[in-house]
Simulated assay, not measured.
Amino acid sequence: MCPKQIAIDFGTSNTLIYIKGRGLVLQEPSVVAINKNNDRILAVGFDAQRMIGKTPVNIQIIKPLKYGSINHFDIAKVMLQNFIEQTKQGGRFFKAFSRAEVLVGVPSGITQVERRGIEEVIKEAGARKVMVVKSVVAAAIGSGASINKPKITFVVDVGGGTTDVAAITLGGILVENSIKVGGNSIDEAIIHYLKKKHNINIGEITAENIKIKIGDAIGKEEKVLEVTGQNLTSGLPILVNINSAEIFTAIKRPLDKIVAAIKKVIEQCPPESAADILENGVVLTGGGSLLNNFDTLLRNELGIKVTSVEQPLIMVTQGLGITLDHLDLLDSMMLEYSPRDIQNKESIIQEDKDIEE
């Protein structure tokens, strides 16, 4: 019996799981609610997200990933186990996840230690083998780009915790850059601005709602939104009207950092790649790219065309799912087995034989 093959986009903001033969089976926020008195997990995903800002002192809301790497190992493991449990089909769960081959997307700028942490969490959750691919490459594959050709595919993946930028060609990364700025940074900028300019405090859910409703990457929109927050002086609830011009001012700094990161990669590309970049432009993906007029901002700043994918939130997972059908190409691409799996390849083969017997 062949082992189950699973792809996981283990993101700072969201976790997505794809099972070969079934497609995308889970898309939940990477959030956990825990009872501090006994360390018991109370809720994960959407159930935990709904508790944000409304919990008593004994309940803590934790996001176990930060900037694409594991921040709370044990909680990340339990969260992943809960998510895996939710992928039951017809009341039957594929054999305890213990025989699964898992392909996971990781940020470009991740360190070996951070990468090992992600691998260990997935292993601890029960996976038999873990393989990794850079999320920006998976996003390129998911968008339909032919990354093995001698043509530059330029990808910008704006996630919750990081923005990854890469020029990809001939199955490898020519130049890449990763910064710890993403959708969450934009939310944080809105929170900071309202504290400074309006003397009110808002939560991350409210900040994200403001970003979605009146956020604009080029300051073109002229919208007003009534926002409820907490007066920092009196501590009492207060209503204020916020306009889109203010939000543009608030989020300009993180947007400038993303643009600078993209320009840095373009500048580092060899001169021969300029024609490809000009012809093919930029593929824009990731949940952070849903900010209104983000693609227009990049066109204005870079002077090249920008293509926004239709489903940016699932593009990495889609690419990982496609890659599951071509695992034989891992050695010739930037996709790779983890060092531990390479070292234990013979024992893994023997494990398969033992299980089948």
Rank of each mutant, 00 (worst) to 15 (best):
V133E: 06
N209C: 02
Y18E: 04
I17K: 00
I6E: 05
N82G: 14
D325F: 11
A189H: 04
S332M: 15
K66W: 06
S289T: 00
P107H: 09
R253H: 14
S273C: 14
E119N: 05
G281C: 10
V137Q: 10
K36V: 01
K345P: 11
E204W: 01
S234L: 10
L236W: 00
N280E: 12
H72F: 13
N58T: 05
G171V: 08
I152T: 13
Y193S: 14
N292K: 15
G303S: 10
I41A: 07
I190G: 01
G45C: 02
A260T: 14
L232T: 09
K63F: 07
H326N: 05
E351Q: 11
K197M: 09
A250N: 12
L330R: 07
M315N: 15
V106Q: 08
V132E: 07
T55D: 07
V283C: 15
R115K: 11
A100R: 04
V78W: 02
M315G: 01
K305V: 05
I70F: 01
E351C: 04
A43F: 02
V130L: 04
T162Q: 06
R22V: 08
A140F: 03
S143G: 11
A189Y: 09
F294H: 04
Q27S: 15
L225M: 12
G183T: 11
K220F: 09
R116I: 12
E176A: 10
T169S: 15
H192F: 14
K129S: 09
L297H: 05
Q81L: 09
F73G: 08
L236K: 13
K134W: 03
L26V: 10
R116M: 11
K36F: 02
I247Q: 06
G172D: 12
N209H: 06
G235L: 04
K180D: 10
T12C: 00
G159S: 01
R40N: 10
I168L: 13
T87R: 07
P3I: 04
N292M: 07
